[in-house]
Design a binder for these strands. Structure first.
Length: 426
DNA sequence: TCTGGGGTCCTAGGACCC
DNA sequence: TCTGGGGTCCTAGGACCC
């Protein structure tokens, strides 16, 4: 059997932890730039706040109900996520926890005897809460896809299910599938849901009945076949060893306000390069390919917000690199080619791909690889920035004033990762 | 005035090889 | 009137996830 452990309203739960007076009041957490709502407490959900709603459109409703809003505080969420995962790992045999996202992990329970499943899961949940203060929901079933469905249903009825649902018999599985709309199935997105509607497939149970060959044709080939298998209790998505090195790394941001000025956009792109290169160095990778994109400001049509498509350019670097200094210049050149005077831009980004381990760096005949001095300089910059405060040392080309910087007006403190922000108990 | 960011996997089709 | 077949590798784009 497999379990999915999912933190409830994760970002909201993190904020509450250090502001206990908000324990029962409705709150929401906003995306970068305070753009839209990406986490809601149960109270906010009940008040009709929708996921991904634009913040500025929701303001009246938030005010009316006295809902507290926070900018996203990724230092805090990242640290608490780590604690939750470590708590689970400490309770289970090695390699039984697959960290799936910041607030979710799959757990291999194949070594737990069936009659102990329920108690084990309960203890997992209770200890995570006791050690970290974060409430979780757990779904248990023979496959990952079914476990996800168990979790979805457990969350939907927190009082009754106590946030846990065990689907350990065919009867329970079928009953659960019949109650689950097909678009809630893991792996069925908007496009597939539309398609399924035409075939009169409405619930997860309907989908389970469909033949694999049909899925191969209409549901994205092998992906669809796997999905049907999983719904039928046949394990088709194993417990992955967590991906330790990423295959691509990026930094992309919407500007604090739309930009027309090339100089300011250059600063922003230089900063994105710095951040993405930092990620490269952290996993000991170097990039052979770099892509820069910009997005023009969307027309305000008053109805549904529809962003423009990105316009991008890429280059293959002469030598794979993770050195910020090497990477800023070509990035700026790409930006200069993309930029059109008079146009208004709302977003830009840098993506590094074709990553290779630093240890295997191949020198090009004409371009020396980063010298040891350069690498040691980057190490020192990273160490200072990590231990003191983000970006205490930065490249001048990434700007000092930074008028393009994103908005974060409702940010809480870094309670767990910065000495000055520690809570005081008096 | 103001609408997130960062990933993965799969497939089809083109380029190239013998 | 007639012009091979079978591979591999790479990339762009689409779908999905949180």
């Amino acid at each position: 059997m497999k379990a999915i452990v999912d933190c409830n309203n994760f970002y909201c739960s993190c904020e509450r932890l250090f502001q206990p007076h908000l324990k029962t009041t409705p709150l929401v957490v906003l995306s970068n730039n305070d753009g839209c709502i990406i986490s809601r407490s149960d109270e906010s959900k009940r008040l009709g706040i929708k996921m991904a709603q634009a913040y500025f459109l929701s303001k009246p409703l938030l005010k009316e109900h006295g809902i507290t809003a926070f900018s996203s505080n990724y230092n805090l969420y990242g640290d608490l996520s780590k604690r939750v995962m470590e708590t689970m790992q400490s309770m289970l045999p090695a390699n039984c926890v697959e960290v799936y996202s910041v607030d979710e992990a799959f757990v291999d329970l194949s070594q737990v005897p069936p009659r102990d499943l329920s108690a084990t899961v309960k203890e997992l949940k209770e200890r995570i809460f006791q050690w970290t203060g974060i409430p979780v929901s757990i779904g248990v079933a023979p496959t990952k896809t079914l476990a996800k469905i168990g979790n979805y249903l457990a969350k939907g009825n927190k009082e009754k299910s106590k946030c846990m649902l065990l689907l350990d018999t065919g009867g329970k599985v079928n009953a659960a599938l019949k109650r689950t709309p097909v678009d809630e199935v893991w792996g069925v997105g908007k496009q597939n849901a539309n398609k399924l509607e035409k075939f009169a497939v409405k619930t997860a149970y309907d989908l389970k009945q469909m033949p694999e060959e049909w899925a191969r044709q209409h549901l994205g080939g092998v992906v669809g076949v796997r999905l049907i298998k999983e719904l039928n209790g046949v394990d088709a998505i194993g417990l992955d060893e967590p991906l330790t090195t990423k295959k691509m790394v990026s930094c992309t941001r919407r500007f604090g306000h739309p930009l027309t000025d090339l100089a300011q956009m250059k600063e922003a792109v230089a900063m994105y390069v710095s951040r993405a290169a930092e990620k490269l160095r952290r996993q000991n990778s170097a990039a052979k390919k770099m892509t820069v994109f910009v997005i023009e400001k969307a027309l305000n049509r008053g109805d549904i917000y529809k962003p423009n498509e990105p316009i991008n350019l890429d280059i293959n670097l002469p030598v794979a690199s993770s050195n910020t200094n090497d990477l800023i210049k070509p990035a700026i050149e790409l930006l200069e080619q993309l930029y059109k005077p008079g146009f208004i831009y709302e977003k830009a980004g840098v993506i590094f791909s074709k990553l290779v381990p630093v240890s295997s760096l191949q020198a090009n005949l004409f371009t020396p690889p980063a010298t040891n001095e350069q690498r040691s300089l980057m190490n020192k910059v990273d160490n200072i920035n990590f231990s003191m405060r983000n970006e205490i040392v930065k490249f001048a080309s990434s700007g000092i004033q930074r008028p393009w910087k994103m908005k974060q007006e409702l940010l809480s403190q870094k309670y767990t990762t910065r000495w000055n922000d520690l809570c005081l108990v008096s």
